[in-house]
Design a protein around this nucleic acid. Sequence first.
DNA 1: GATATAGTTGAGCGTAACGCTCGGGTATTT
DNA 2: AAATACCCGAGCGTTACGCTCAACTATATC
Lengths: 160, 160
Amino acid sequence: MRLTTKGRFAVTAMMDLAMRHGSAPVALAQISERQKISLSYLEQLFGKLRRHALVASVRGPGGGYRLAKGLEDVSVADIILAVDEPIDATQCGGKENCKDQQKCLTHDLWTNLNNRIFDYLESVTLRNLVDDQKARNTGVRQVQDMRDGSSRVSGATASL
Amino acid sequence: MRLTTKGRFAVTAMMDLAMRHGSAPVALAQISERQKISLSYLEQLFGKLRRHALVASVRGPGGGYRLAKGLEDVSVADIILAVDEPIDATQCGGKENCKDQQKCLTHDLWTNLNNRIFDYLESVTLRNLVDDQKARNTGVRQVQDMRDGSSRVSGATASL
DNA sequence: GATATAGTTGAGCGTAACGCTCGGGTATTT
DNA sequence: AAATACCCGAGCGTTACGCTCAACTATATC
């Protein structure tokens, strides 16, 4: 799993879309202006999102994009995997030259950690993000994490 | 938080070190050979790890590196932050031009998600990884996640 | 002290990906 | 027909990665 601003842009744009779910299709130009993302760049990202069936397009005047699934059915992992080409992480692609324990150490270590991170990102859906955002906008402080109770919200992780 | 092979290499090398904790210092040349990482590249990585007080060096013949802290006191997040320069993720660095709700949407969204990912990576220590690895080597299947019970270990996430 | 070991540092380099622009398309609506 | 807005591919500057090379310094052993 690769974590970069590319995926962030995609998630941000999907959030923009998610908060207008049910309304008329949203034009990329609007998202571009609201989220300050280059229109041409958005077109590239949404091309990938569309090919991964995360969004559906409506052509012509009044057209735009809308979510192809429900808020609960789109996870952050889905979005990131759609726009970010995955990297193999284990230098021995498949099972090739993975004999001694040391190489398998690297192998298992990363597939395991990858799965953990992936599981986490998959557990966060657009619904979660939208709910969090709405709660924040109304000033109400809600439970942020559905899984555990850890909540170091600010402080040392400022410039993360 | 940035997730790239650079951080992976660093964690892999730290794992190699962790599994020899308590023994004599480990030379980078050994790690290079075992983990198939370029020696010069390792030198760069360990320079950063040393400056972040994650490892200590012993010079001269018989020298090498050893962990500067206990296995429980080094998290994956520590390692990645040491070698990977953090990126700010929010295009409006601090609190500048963050007036309307839309921009703060982007802002809050990512600081929040970043914190979540960071919390997770910080919760995984070298101790966890070493224990997992030992359990795997002895063929015993142990509980992998200390927090929740999710355990999709293999399958669709192969080429993550 | 000479020599070998092994950490320490800095400069640089090819490649690839990012983030983005440009210029054209094509479908749909009015 | 004209306007809207999705679609698509080529390309481009910059940056970071992953790595090499070349030196230097500190320690240990003989």
